[in-house]
Simulated scan of single mutants.
Amino acid sequence: MEKPTRIKTGSGPPQAFRYYDIVMAAFVAILLLSNIIGAAKPSYITLPNGSEWSFGAGVLFFPISYIIGDILTEVYGYAKARRVIWTGFAALTFMAFMAWVVVALPPAEGWDGQEAYEKVFGNTWRIVLASIIAFWAGEFANSIVLAKMKVWTKGKMLWSRTIGSTVVGQGLDSMLFYPIAFLGQDGWTTELIIQLVLSQWLIKTAWEAFLTPVTYVVVNKLKSAEGVDIYDTATDFSPFAKSD
């Protein structure tokens, strides 16, 4: 297996990659599907003491988008990951707009699925806004931390930066989403929101740690296939900077 060429950002012309578009498509697809399918259904597990612990079903799959985000930053660098995050942000925004339009359209006579349709796709403006803001902030924090840690660790200890960036990114995601979406509504006490933030944070981070071996395999294979190992030593980390 050939060793990937170590490239520092700003040291040469933009690279052409074989699998970048595929990874981007996987990221956006999982992001949208976890919000469409998983977000609408609460589920539970039975604890050893017989009590039930509830969680949002989307938490089982949404963290995979963060893992793909880690892979993007680690293999292709922050600038390429930034483009993917903005693509995901645009797709998430359009999905919310499309859902609002379709739900608002009057149902045809004889169709009795409007109530069920509204229940699944008719999220309140607060939930939609919270989801978009939390995704944007969490993903950028995740990518920036991972890129900077790669330089600090000189490319060693991949596990430390994938888990460390997830602690920051997923923590910010959870801390933004629940207060923006639910704080002040009936039944949503501050204590409940804090519990949900902490539980979601722990679950998402645990997922990242559990799937670390998979991350290692994918990262190594992509670096070998693309022939690069990018370090963000001269990168503008502003989310609004122009991507390569």
Rank of each mutant, 00 (worst) to 15 (best):
S43R: 06
Q114A: 10
P106E: 04
G138T: 00
S54V: 12
F135I: 02
D21K: 13
T5H: 13
E115P: 05
Q15G: 05
W201F: 15
L222C: 04
P13K: 15
M149K: 02
M149I: 08
G77F: 02
P239E: 02
V217S: 08
L202T: 15
G56D: 10
G110N: 08
V84S: 01
F237I: 13
D229L: 14
L196M: 15
K80D: 06
E208I: 13
A79H: 03
T87S: 14
T46C: 08
E208D: 14
D112I: 13
A225M: 06
G56K: 10
W159A: 08
G10V: 07
A209T: 14
V151A: 03
R18I: 11
L211M: 09
T189Y: 08
Y178I: 01
G164F: 00
R126N: 07
K80M: 07
A91P: 00
I36S: 08
L72F: 04
D232L: 03
V145K: 05
R83V: 13
I193D: 01
T73F: 00
A181H: 00
I71V: 14
T124N: 05
E115N: 10
E52K: 12
L192D: 15
T205F: 12
Q185K: 06
I203R: 06
V120C: 07
A79F: 02
T166W: 04
G164R: 04
F62A: 03
K221Q: 12
K221E: 12
V84F: 01
A234C: 09
K242P: 08
P106H: 05
A81V: 00
V28K: 07
G69P: 08
E118Q: 11
F27E: 01
I180D: 01
P13W: 10
A79E: 05
D21E: 15
Q195H: 11
D112T: 14
L198K: 11
G138E: 03
I127V: 05
Q170L: 13
